[in-house]
Amino acid sequence: MRIDMELEAYLRPPDAPMPLYPAKVITLVTGGKMVVRQVFREDVPKLLPAVRPTLDIPRDYYDVVGARLYAELLAWQRYRYRDVFCIIGQVDGLLVGIVNSRMYSPQVGISLHTLAIERGLRVGAHLFAAKMEHHIEYLGQDEVLITAESPIGFRRWMIEYGLELREGQHELGGAAPYGLTREMYFDAKHRLVAGQRPVPPDLMEVAEREIIVASEQDIIEKILGARREIP
């Protein structure tokens, strides 16, 4: 599809300068090594197949989170969403979770979505913490606005991070926004932010070689739990 670059010049938002998120590795309870790293526009087509199966999973609002994340990834890839960053988790190359977020202004970040494909290993919690880490420590922002579609995640974050209620609306237009300030982040960091840097080269090589996406059936079973028929 040809793009009229003259019109495109009006529509494409300018990107603010954003420092990169340095990759880290987190040891999971299984002993598995999860590489947490930033991905970019050109990686979006590799992520979409992992998000798509969630569109039909109402449990824990996976469908709402998945549909919105899918749209956000597409809009970002095609220059319709500005100042976005995306971080993924991979274990042996396999994609286990995706988080995205954006800068609303140089000072304020907006947390968008957290999608855990592997459940029960705190993948979602680790990746959510990674995006807070990026907003506060690497983008140098003062505050991140957070809301949630799933009541489980929301309550956990509100209490674990000690979030404060904010006036107005979150740009996702759902529940009231809560704020995470620099101070709250650094108070909670030792409890909630894991990982080591740099990532050993062999692990990084495996992660960067290919973003492996589980089959649609596997993704559904990972999220819903496989229905076990035992004779």
Partner: peptide
Amino acid sequence: PYAHIRARVTLEGILTHPDSKVGNP
């Protein structure tokens, strides 16, 4: 096959590695 949690956990993952303080809160 009747068990709810189907994951092998390791001493490193739940106790000795610094990340276990976060992953096994």
